[in-house]
């Protein structure tokens, strides 16, 4: 079974050390995710692609306790089998805070300020039997 990313251009895949693909403003060094052509900080229009750091600290978090509506959600929406998942912002030092799924969904195991690392997780299986993957952050062991 092949693994395919939920989209192209948002994270590097396949890769041993996947990274989010963002943009950097050539004029003011502001970092953005996902990449975009204009800079919301200085209003400049020159940005370049930049790979974001793989580690950061958890800035805030919540737990998605009910199945999201599908569409747009591609994962499991069956109330009988749905597994709650964590969602948070991870602060990547010197770059930007990125929103991501978290591999942990237990309030006791999530603390603001904890070290996190980017990982790739399965999201769903498409009609051709491919495993569709997306990015997430996991606590650093």
């Amino acid at each position: 079974m092949a693994q395919i990313p939920v989209t192209e251009g948002v994270f590097t895949w396949p890769s041993e050390t996947p990274q989010l693909i963002g943009a950097r403003c050539v004029d003011c060094d502001n970092h953005m995710f996902p990449g975009q052509s204009g800079c919301p900080r200085c209003t400049g229009d020159k940005t370049e692609e930049v790979l974001l750091g793989r580690r950061g600290t958890l800035w805030t978090w919540t737990i998605q306790g009910f199945p999201p509506k599908a569409p747009p959600y591609a994962g499991d929406v069956d109330v009988k089998t749905f597994q709650a998942f964590g969602v948070g912002y991870v602060e990547l030092p010197g770059q930007v805070k990125v929103e991501a799924r978290l591999t942990v969904a237990d309030p006791e195991k999530l603390k603001i300020g904890m070290e996190m690392e980017m990982v790739i997780i399965p999201l769903t299986t498409d009609a051709d039997g491919n495993e569709v993957v997306t990015f997430a952050f996991a606590p650093v062991a």
Binding site: V6, T60, T62, Y73, Y89, R101, L123, T134
Partner: peptide, 21 residues
């Protein structure tokens, strides 16, 4: 992008949980 909702992130409720947390 479509990936955002597909990945389970496009819920306004998540923002409110994260902001108050």
């Amino acid at each position: 992008g479509d990936w955002y909702g597909a990945s389970g992130l496009a819920l306004t409720t998540q923002f409110f949980g994260m902001k108050i947390n």
